[in-house]
């Protein structure tokens, strides 16, 4: 039985991943903003076989609570083996172009809050000498594009932070997993036309779960995004800047 903390536990991908942990008999500490929704998910996970499910309502942008939340999770579960950070929003790129306040708010949610959580988590895992830190990033962080570069900036910063953290914690035997999903059919992307490249949250959750089991560093989900992003990254900037992406 592992002890698992999930921040952003009401997101569709996080919920689907939590079910896989529950099915495996792991104990869970779920964090998100809405207590009623956390309650609905916690009930479901208990019925599915999780021996212990605890919840805490917290806004990830309330940085001052991060340290205490993590300490409470560790005390309540009696330890911590896996931390999955999955909260996030999809910024309105056009609104961000009009207002730096908007951009700052999105960077708070999608980048700074994650760096804050990682700071405290790294400390715990380094002392413990084992465990997994997994963060839901995005393929959007691999290259800046006009359609969503604020989101991409946040994710790119998280990716580099995770690279550094992985490097630092590798000697302590800590897995630091960067998860880069492509298009996922979730409430966050409800407004988009869905095509062949879109994956279901359950599929992405399965990929996250197995990447944790297999001690991966970076995982693209579904797998073919590794090749799509390799192609996108190989386009020279002087051509790329003229493309509508």
């Amino acid at each position: 039985m592992r002890k698992v903390l999930i921040v952003g536990a009401t997101s569709a991908i996080a919920e689907a991943t939590a079910r896989l942990f529950a099915g495996n008999g792991d104990a869970l500490y779920l964090v998100a903003r809405n207590q009623d929704r956390l309650g609905a998910i916690a009930n479901d996970l208990r019925v599915r076989g999780a021996p212990q499910v605890e919840t805490e309502a917290m806004d990830a942008n309330d940085f001052s609570r991060h340290r205490a939340m993590i300490e409470t999770a560790i005390v309540t579960l009696g330890g911590l083996d896996v931390a999955l950070i999955a909260h996030g929003t999809l910024p309105d790129q056009k609104a961000c172009e009009q207002s730096f306040d908007e951009t700052l708010k999105e960077l708070q949610t999608n980048c700074l809050s994650i760096l804050s959580l990682l700071t405290y988590l790294a400390d715990h895992f380094e002392r413990q000498g084992s465990g997994t830190i997994a963060v839901l990033s995005s393929v959007a962080g691999d290259r800046g594009r006009q359609s969503n570069y604020v989101y991409g900036t946040a994710k790119a910063a998280v990716n580099v932070f995770l690279q550094g953290l992985r490097n630092r914690l590798s000697r302590a035997n800590i897995q630091v997993l960067t998860i880069k999903p492509g298009f996922v059919d979730t409430p966050m992307t409800a407004g988009f036309q869905k095509g062949l490249l879109w994956a279901k949250p359950e599929k992405v959750a399965g990929g996250i779960y197995s990447a944790i089991q297999r001690k991966k560093d970076v995982v693209y989900l579904p797998w073919f995004w590794r090749f799509i992003m390799a192609v996108i990254n190989s386009i020279p900037e002087r051509l790329f800047k003229k493309m509508k992406l």
Binding site: A12, A40, I41, N43, D44, V47, R48, P187
Partner: peptide, 9 residues
């Protein structure tokens, strides 16, 4: 389909 939680058994 998104309302797919078990409540009690």
């Amino acid at each position: 389909r998104g309302l797919d939680r078990l409540i009690a058994f």
